[in-house]
């Protein structure tokens, strides 16, 4: 579903991403770990067709995302840490607009109510009056309601409280079992071992490791382990 080959991104002579090969197959969820500034957001933005890389290829659902951006966009949904929602809209309107603008007519009402239930929001609640956490809930619920074959999540669970988080993780797991490919950039792996079987580590703009994710594994240890291996390897 997501296929990246030799992806690179240069800016003002600096290599921000280089030689990235990444595959996320249908029904697979991959956690993406990395320190601040390692290039995770840039990578997700490229996959979401918001940026153009300087080299390499990106396929989303078998579509060349660099050449056929509009077609690729229909296959994916990006949820970012800071969702840019319109404060003038209500929660119900936002979900409805997302569904309407994708031309989803079948079961729209049901998806809408499921989304609102998942986010625990009333349809008439004004976005401008929601807390950042509730906004993130709404944005993620909207992305799940769209049921795109590919989900790109950039710190999409960070602001969601510990009580609501498992519910969203379960919803993501359900999408995964339905065949959705999920790439989840995160710093926190708590409760994600059921969703993501594997974790990839991005460091200095390169994917330096991809390994199985054990239950309760500490992301700090994973990053430290990879750094140690890398430094040992370079010596």
């Amino acid at each position: 579903m997501i296929r990246v080959r030799q992806l690179s991104l240069k800016r003002r002579g600096a290599e921000l991403l280089s030689g990235i090969d990444l595959d996320v197959t249908r029904g697979e969820a991959l956690a993406l770990l990395g320190t601040n500034g390692c290039g995770r957001t840039l990578l997700l933005e490229i996959l979401a067709t918001l940026r153009r890389p300087t080299g390499g290829t990106v396929e989303i659902g078998g579509i060349d995302a660099l050449r056929e951006q509009s077609r690729a966009r229909r296959e994916l949904c990006l949820v970012e840490a800071e969702p840019g929602l319109h404060p003038e809209l209500t929660a119900g309107e936002y979900l409805e607009f997302c569904l309407e603008s994708r031309g989803i007519d079948e079961g729209r009402r049901r998806r809408l109510s499921e989304g609102l239930r998942l986010a625990e929001l009333a349809p008439e609640q004004l976005i401008g009056e929601l807390s950042p956490g509730l906004c993130q809930r709404l944005d993620l619920a909207a992305a799940l309601a769209l049921r795109t074959p590919v989900l790109l999540l950039d710190q999409a669970l960070t602001k969601i409280d510990p009580l609501a988080r498992p519910r969203f993780v379960r919803a993501l797991e359900k999408r995964r079992t339905e065949g959705c490919a999920i790439l989840l950039a995160t710093h926190c792996l708590v409760g994600l071992d059921g969703l993501c079987r594997q974790v990839a580590v991005l460091q200095g703009g390169r994917i330096v490791a991809r390994q199985a994710l054990a239950p309760g594994q500490d992301p700090g240890r994973i990053l430290a382990g990879v750094s140690r291996d890398g430094s040992e390897g370079s010596e």
Binding site: L50, Q69, S70, R73, L78, E80, C98, S101, R102, T148
Partner: peptide, 14 residues
Amino acid sequence: GGDLLRWSVRCGAA
């Protein structure tokens, strides 16, 4: 600019 592009990604449109 960027906001327009982001919304276009969300609604799968150009």
